[in-house]
C-alpha cells in the first residue's frame, strides 16, 4: 500500500510522516526514487551481489539522515547524492574508481529492460536497434564509472548540468567537460566498431 502524496509539497509530507514513525511512507519514498538509484548503481557497480548490499546501505543512510534534510534540493536529488557518494566510496575501496574497470566481472546483461522481452518475430529494424543498443552498451562499459554515470544522468534521466553537479558534488564546468569527453569517447568507440564490422 503506497501513501498518497497528493500535497503541495509531497517530499515534505512524506518526510514528516517518516519522521513520525510511518515506515509505509518510507516505502513510498523508496518506490519514488528506486529507478534513479538503480540507474546510478548499475552504471557504477558491476557486481550484482554488491549492488544489493549497496542499495540497502543507501536507503538506510537516507532513513537515518532524513531528519537533517533541509529541502534545499529535491528529495530525489538528495538521495541521488547519497547514492553517488556511497558508490564512489565502494569504488574507492575496490580501487575501481579511475580506470581499468573490472569488465571481466561485468554483469550489465542483468539490466532488466523496462519494455520487457522482445517478441520472437522481431522485425529487421528491431534487430538493428537491438544490435545498436548492444554495441552502445559495450561502448558505455569502456567509459569510467563516473563518466558513465554522468552520461546516464544527462541523456537518460534528462537532468540539467546543475542537478548533476549537486548530485556528484562536481562544479558545473567539470560536469560539462567530463560529459564532452565521455560523448566524444563514445562516438569514437562506436565509429571504430562500425568500421571493424565493415571490414
Amino acid at each position: 500500500m503506497s501513501v498518497s502524496t497528493n500535497h503541495s509539497n509531497p517530499d515534505k509530507y512524506l518526510i514528516d510522516r517518516v519522521l513520525n514513525g510511518d515506515k509505509q511512507a518510507f516505502a513510498t519514498i523508496i518506490h519514488n526514487t528506486e529507478a534513479l538509484v538503480a540507474q546510478m548503481v548499475f552504471r557504477m557497480v558491476s557486481r550484482a551481489e554488491d549492488r544489493k548490499d549497496l542499495v540497502q546501505d543507501i536507503y538506510i543512510k537516507v532513513y537515518s539522515n532524513l531528519q537533517g534534510f533541509r529541502h534545499q534540493a529535491r528529495l530525489s536529488t538528495w538521495i541521488g547524492q547519497i547514492t553517488y557518494n556511497t558508490c564512489i566510496s565502494y569504488l574507492r575501496k575496490k580501487q575501481l574508481l579511475l580506470s581499468g574497470y573490472d569488465n571481466e566481472n561485468s554483469e550489465e546483461e542483468d539490466i532488466v529492460p523496462v519494455q520487457g522481452p522482445v517478441a520472437s518475430d522481431e522485425s529487421d529494424s528491431q534487430l538493428f536497434n537491438k544490435e545498436r543498443s548492444m554495441i552502445l552498451q559495450a561502448a558505455m562499459e569502456k567509459l569510467s564509472p563516473i563518466h558513465r554515470t554522468l552520461v546516464t544522468l544527462y541523456h537518460q534521466e534528462e537532468m540539467s548540468y546543475q542537478e548533476i553537479g549537486v548530485i556528484t558534488g562536481l562544479p558545473e564546468g567539470t560536469v560539462k567537460s567530463y560529459l564532452f569527453r565521455a560523448r566524444k569517447a563514445l562516438k569514437e568507440n562506436l565509429l571504430l566498431n562500425y568500421k571493424k564490422e565493415e571490414l
Partner: peptide, 16 residues
Amino acid sequence: SLPKALFDFDVAALVL
C-alpha cells in the same frame, strides 16, 4: 533509447 536499469528484487521489502 538504451534500456533503463531496474533492480530485479523488491527494494522496499529488502530495506524496510
